[in-house]
Amino acid sequence: MNDDQETQAAAPAENRTGYSGPALATESKAHSMFSPSRIWALTMHTFTQMVRMRVFYFLLFFSAAIILVAFMFLRFTPEQELKLLKDVSLGAMSLFAGIFAIAGTALLIPKDLEDRTLYTILCKPVPRFEYLLGKLLGMLVLIFVSMLFMDALFCTVVGVREKILVKETADAYDQELAKFPERGQNESWKEQREEALAAITNYGLRWDLQAAVWAIFLKASVMTAVTLLVSTFATTTLFTIISSIAVFIIGHGQHLGRSYFLSGAPEGGFERPLAGVIAIIFPDFHLYDIVDAVVSGEAVATTLLLQMSGMTCLYLLIYTAAASFVFSNKEL
């Protein structure tokens, strides 16, 4: 490069091109290291990619399962029917959200590599952590939308079934009253009637059910972040899926290791350090297990939900940061 060329390269653009008007938008906008709009574009791309893989077909199975459960067991008591319906629906939600979180996320990076989309994205000035963040958020949006559908269907079916059961029970008592009018004067009989109706309402549609649905979503979110982290260093999709399932299972027993480690019990060989390692490495999924309590009629405190949500944000932040470090210089 001679002196003239050097001077020209260092000179402002307008001097080089001869353009002296207002600065062009493309040139004035400096490339930022973090762009929410880029992340949003990647998020929506991931969401669309998954939708095109026909993942929402599972909703048909979910609908069939809960409608079947809602109207099949006609010889159960009303409380038993509603409990069964809630158990199965929330269990199915948990199962589908877990499958999405593990299988869907495990497929993300290999699919982008196979379609060559990954190279198209990363050859542009898109930082790798933005790519990962976009993928993570895309999966979270997908899980959230699926859960919205499932929740709406679940609430509708529980609400309808509850109304039918309340009406049937009230009718049964009314028929008894018509047959034995003297029972209308019997306080115990009246109390029994009120108790039966209250029991159905207690097992029916309540706001606390939404807390259980939210906890399922949060657990699936952590699982998504874990799977994304594993997929950044995994060599095959199968490895990612199996490892993530293992983390999921161990994560439900992690609290045992943690309690033992923190209990201060005298060290017995390698047991306590091993418990500590398990507690440190694996996330605690047991913290999200409130479904049983909610189905049994326990009220869920708002502070607990806030704590749970805060913990989830922390998990997402840390696991995504770790995944970014692993992925940042990975040969693709």
Partner: peptide, 14 residues
């Protein structure tokens, strides 16, 4: 039960 069944205790119970 907690460790083995993970988050699906209620489903298995039903």
């Amino acid at each position: 039960m907690t460790a083995a069944l993970g988050g699906f205790r209620s489903l298995v119970a039903s």
